[in-house]
Measured scan of single mutants.
Amino acid sequence: SKNWSEDDLQLLIKAVNLFPAGTNSRWEVIANYMNIHSSSGVKRTAKDVIGKA
């Protein structure tokens, strides 16, 4: 699996709070948010995000 930096983990926590349970396509939305805002340049999929959340 791809390494997660501390910044990416913080971003994931922020995204999970921004897009609560019940959000349509929640994990796709979170992955997309991370891909836009992450400084690491690593592209995450919904599966990556679910695996780490």
Rank of each mutant, 00 (worst) to 15 (best):
W4N: 02
K52M: 07
A21D: 12
A21F: 11
G22N: 11
V16W: 07
A15W: 03
I30L: 02
A21S: 13
A21W: 07
N32D: 13
A21G: 10
D7A: 15
W4T: 03
K43M: 09
T23L: 08
N3R: 06
W4Y: 06
N24R: 12
Q10R: 08
D48S: 08
L9D: 15
Q10T: 06
Q10W: 02
L11I: 14
S1M: 05
S25E: 09
F19V: 10
K2W: 06
K52L: 05
K47F: 08
K52E: 13
M34S: 01
G51D: 15
N32A: 12
G51K: 15
W27E: 09
D8H: 04
V29W: 11
V29F: 06
K14N: 07
S38I: 00
S38A: 08
I30N: 00
S1G: 15
L18W: 04
A31H: 01
P20V: 02
A31Q: 04
Q10I: 08
S38G: 12
N3Q: 08
L9F: 15
W27M: 06
I36K: 15
S40N: 09
A46C: 11
K2H: 08
D7Y: 05
L9S: 15
S1I: 12
D8E: 11
V42A: 03
T23R: 03
A31D: 01
E28R: 10
G41S: 11
Y33A: 02
K14R: 11
N3H: 13
P20I: 00
V16P: 00
T45P: 08
L9H: 11
G22Q: 06
Y33W: 11
I36M: 15
L11F: 05
K52V: 09
T23F: 14
I30A: 03
L9G: 09
W4H: 01
K2A: 07
A21L: 11
Q10K: 10
D8S: 03
L18S: 07
M34Y: 02
W4L: 07
S25F: 07
L18I: 11
N24T: 13
S39H: 14
E6L: 05
D48M: 05
A15K: 00
T23N: 05
V49H: 01
R26T: 04
Q10G: 10
W4P: 01
S25G: 11
I36Y: 10
N17S: 12
A15T: 04
Y33L: 01
P20L: 01
E6T: 09
A15C: 07
K14S: 08
L18Y: 09
K52I: 11
S39L: 11
S40I: 03
V49G: 01
N35Q: 04
V29Y: 09
I13Y: 13
S25A: 11
Q10Y: 08
N35D: 03
D8G: 00
G22A: 12
A21N: 08
Y33S: 01
I50A: 15
S1C: 07
W4G: 01
S38N: 09
G51V: 09
K52R: 10
S38Q: 09
D8V: 01
A31F: 00
G41W: 03
L18G: 04
P20Q: 06
N3L: 10
N35H: 04
N35K: 01
T23K: 04
N17T: 13
N17D: 15
V29K: 10
V16I: 15
N17C: 06
A21C: 10
V29C: 11
E6F: 14
F19R: 01
F19S: 03
M34H: 03
E28Y: 01
P20C: 04
A46F: 05
D8Q: 04
S25P: 04
S40C: 08
A46I: 09
I13P: 04
W27H: 04
L12N: 01
I36S: 14
S25I: 02
A15N: 00
K14P: 00
K52Y: 08
I13M: 14
V49D: 01
N32M: 06
N24K: 13
A15P: 02
N35S: 08
E6P: 15
K43H: 09
F19Q: 01
W4R: 02
D7H: 07
Y33G: 00
N32P: 01
I36N: 14
I36R: 14
M34G: 00
K47G: 12
